[in-house]
Design a protein around this nucleic acid. Structure first.
Lengths: 329, 329
DNA sequence: GCACTGATTGTTATCGCTACCAAAGGGCCG
DNA sequence: CGGCCCTTTGGTAGCGATAACAATCAGTGC
């Protein structure tokens, strides 16, 4: 920076200002400085400016997985929402593991982010302590935690499960099953299942046809295997909700390979509104939570909270899962 | 940090050392310091340590899209490869736009990453200048650039196109088409198409059945529309290669909706070896480039380059695309 | 002409940490 | 017992920027 200052004949302070958007430098000087910087190949050092100004421009974001289209969509929404700000995303994924989430949170807090966004409301104690003491806005998304740490942009996963049961019941199905992964790791998947079971009970239906298979996120392959198990254990099952569209697709192809017609012999419901479920034949009934919108809303809230002017009370934002009925049910 | 030092009765220098892996501090002192830090809620500041030590621990990674399972896999490979180091990924995605890539590279260089990984060998002039002058290892992956900037871990996209033609020809198909997106943005997709066309010509076959539809990455929907156009323009087409498995799936479902049997009436080939193509009915013939492995290799090379001991000459690493024959062709 | 205002630029002192060098303490050997 | 080495700890300067204040200058109104 001193070099650029010298080359332009100004002080380094002026160079610093030339690279800030809102600083008062004459347009002429700024242009000259920018030009000189480009010629010298100078790139401003955010590390130093972050230290000095105590603003790093980072937003730490932790999602369970990047391979999951839903979280990828949320990430996209976040990116879009932060595009015009000078905030940058520091992304980590936890592999659906709260211990790994804790590791990432600690790692990321070292970078002094200006906000932290995590997925879900389930954390280790140590992780929770980190977040509470972070001293910056924290957003929990994709869930409605009982004891929020700070901000919440989410929806009720149990509600999603109930919606699907309601739909199956309206269609006249009575012997209804659920396919998911191990519930120990994926708290949101477990919530969907819990809501699903509760709704079955409320409707006076048997709630025993559960297959849990593989570590989340469960894939098409595991969905297929789980359906195979479902069919051998409860052959007269009429409808199955799957914890995700991917497993729903796997389950559906398993039915088709077994010569079952969907939905006549077996109705299928998924979750997540993947492109896949729209294009599969038959198209798969699913639940849309507006993953991209969740990201966008989280970004908007972060931006609002950081622009100190706004001083609203920030209620949890509750998003309504929406059932999308297609041909598979 | 001074607080922790005071609480433990040591100097801040010793506290600093207690948080480094290789520093010489007695185990006893280190434990006491760590304990005190935890109690005080102290988290070390990487911003400051980065400034002081000139090691930020960042690796800048730019991929075209996170919604694309292939790049998500590469990212996963990278993460795995860097897990045990103290390097952290700074991720950005360019939306298949070299101008956006330039913006990201400039943004990321401000963070003083210790290495930069970009996707593909096509960049704007300014971006290329940035990368050349970055002063840190640069890896171009997913392609074999004619004029590499530094390190290369990639494969020939043209080769991928040729492989599929070869396969179609062996199967006896003669009227062969290609479905892709606008070629102006996706250089790698364009390369696949170029290799495809070249191979058709080499086999003495007509190379005119091209449908380009939508901005990359093209989706299932666009694959379906493109197939519709293909069928109306060249109804007697026997086989089609699609630029990705997603578009291949969309194209295949369009055939099925039109009452065409796959592969008897229309053979389909994709690219990328998505889970989807394995589970679709019929399963889709595709090309596997080992996306995860590319990420892993890139990580390994970065790690090797940064541990100054190794002083090999680093040839481009050329990965061989592999044809996976399934039932759709 | 003079005080006053607003726009632009310069000076100085940090931000929180680590590199570098120095020094203290303990064990071993001749 | 002195000298040497090794382990562990401390002091100081500086990494590259910005915050906060000070200073300069031109224009304005009276």
């Amino acid at each position: 920076m001193a070099d650029v200052a010298h080359a332009t004949g100004v002080s380094s302070m002026t160079v610093s200002r030339a690279f800030k958007d809102d600083a008062s430098v004459s347009k002429q000087t700024r242009d000259r400085i920018r030009e000189a910087a480009d010629a010298l190949g100078y790139v401003i050092d955010s590390t130093a400016s972050g230290l000095s100004s105590r603003k790093t421009g980072f937003v730490a974001v932790i999602i369970p997985s990047v391979s999951n289209a839903n979280f990828a969509d949320t990430l996209r929404g976040l990116t879009e929402g932060l595009r015009e700000t000078n905030l940058q995303i520091l992304l980590g994924y936890s592999d659906y593991d709260v211990k790994e989430e804790e590791r990432l949170v600690e790692l990321f807090l070292r970078r002094r982010p200006e906000a932290v966004i995590v997925t879900g409301g389930t954390h280790t104690d140590r992780c929770r302590r980190f977040l509470v003491n972070a001293g910056v806005p924290v957003v929990e998304m994709w869930d409605l935690p009982h004891e929020p740490i700070d901000q919440v942009i989410g929806f009720s996963n149990a509600q999603a499960g109930r919606l699907m049961v309601q739909h199956f019941v309206e269609r006249g199905y009575e012997r209804i099953g659920f396919i998911g992964g191990d519930t120990s790791r994926d708290a949101r998947g477990a919530d969907r299942r819990a809501g699903f079971l509760q709704a079955l009970c409320d409707s006076g239906l048997e709630a025993t046809r559960l297959v849990a298979f593989g570590t989340p996120p469960i894939t098409m392959r595991e969905g297929a295997r789980a359906m195979k198990q479902m069919l051998s254990q409860w052959p007269n099952t009429q409808a199955v909700m799957c914890v995700s569209d991917l497993s729903a697709f796997g389950a559906m192809t398993e039915c088709q390979r077994s010569g079952l017609r969907v939905p006549e012999d077996m109705a299928i419901g998924g979750f997540g509104s993947y492109d896949l479920s729209e294009h599969a034949i038959p198209a798969i009934t699913t639940i849309d939570v507006g993953a991209r919108n969740i990201g966008r809303q989280a970004a908007m809230r972060i931006v609002a909270l950081l622009s100190s002017t706004s001083q609203g009370n920030w209620e949890p934002m509750q998003i309504e899962p929406e059932l999308i009925v297609r041909h598979s049910s």
